[in-house]
């Protein structure tokens, strides 16, 4: 009985802040802008505008995740080899303590026509380039913001890795590359999956950066949700997009999720 009592706050939390909002979102998605019950929002979602937006969102989220992974894996690998692991780790986590908006504003200054990056490009003879409001800067800043969430799970997986397995592989004559491909990477796959989830899912619904860094040249589903709730006040359409985002996220969780879960517990 007592054990259940301790679970009460948890269940209350889940019911109030997870289940209730989801039910509300699904409920709102069935109302049109005049507050009448209808399926018009779902029809609108399947028009070319929103389908293209969905494809765009997935494409950018994929780019952001792929770039993060490409940088994060070697970084995490090197981290496990360094002397002051905790210090390095702290340095990587540190930027996540700074508010996202502040970081975005900092990049407005850095990437500007007269910003530090362009001053450097000018100095080494490449010349001033338009950095702000391009696809490049959008992906770059997003990767910068999300990369700690990719490094950490991979780092943890690498740390947990049993070293004798690597030694065994080398003793049996595997080259370094083969050892990585056949032993290290498969054994840290769970960390990679967790990292991909932590990056892909939030980048699917990014919205502030699309305006600040991409100058509204990149429109994702998140941007549309924000606009429908705050500007148009078409809560129904905003909720409908949110429903599809949730379905997409659940799908991603299912694909990348750890299938051994049920067995272990």
């Amino acid at each position: 009985m007592r054990r259940y009592a301790y679970a009460v706050p948890y269940w209350l939390w889940i019911a109030l802040f997870v289940i209730a909002p989801i039910i509300l979102i699904v409920y709102y998605s069935f109302f049109d802008i005049e507050g009448r019950f209808s399926l018009v929002n779902y029809e609108t979602f399947f028009t070319p505008v929103y389908l293209r937006m969905t494809v765009n969102s997935f494409w950018y989220a994929f780019l952001i995740t792929a770039c993060s992974l490409l940088i994060a894996y070697p970084t995490a690998y090197l981290l496990t080899k360094t002397k002051h692991k905790q210090l390095w780790l702290l340095l990587i986590i540190l930027p996540t303590w700074v508010n996202l908006l502040l970081k975005a504003y900092a990049f407005l200054g850095l990437f500007g026509t007269y910003g530090a990056v362009n001053a450097l490009l000018e100095a080494i003879g490449i010349g001033t380039k338009q950095l702000l409001f391009t696809d490049f800067s959008f992906v770059f800043v997003s990767v910068y913001i999300f990369i700690p969430f990719m490094i950490l799970p991979i780092f943890n997986a690498l740390e947990k890795l049993n070293h004798s397995l690597i030694d065994a592989a080398r003793d049996l004559g595997a080259s370094e590359w083969t050892t990585f491909r056949r032993v290290i990477f498969p054994l840290t796959l769970d960390g990679v999956k967790a990292g991909c989830q932590a990056v892909f899912i939030p980048s699917l619904s990014l919205f502030m950066l699309t305006r600040l860094i991409a100058g509204n040249r990149v429109i994702t589903l998140g941007t549309a949700v924000e606009q429908h709730f705050l500007v148009t006040q078409n809560w129904g359409m905003g909720a409908t997009i949110a429903v599809f985002l949730m379905i997409a996220m659940a799908g991603i969780m299912a694909i990348t999720g750890n299938k051994k879960w049920g067995v272990r517990q």
Partner: peptide
């Protein structure tokens, strides 16, 4: 069109972006 922005437009124009 270079960008469609919010309040930052003031800073960007003043900085000759």
């Amino acid at each position: 069109v270079k960008a469609i922005v919010g309040d930052e437009i003031k800073m960007l124009l003043a900085n000759e972006e």
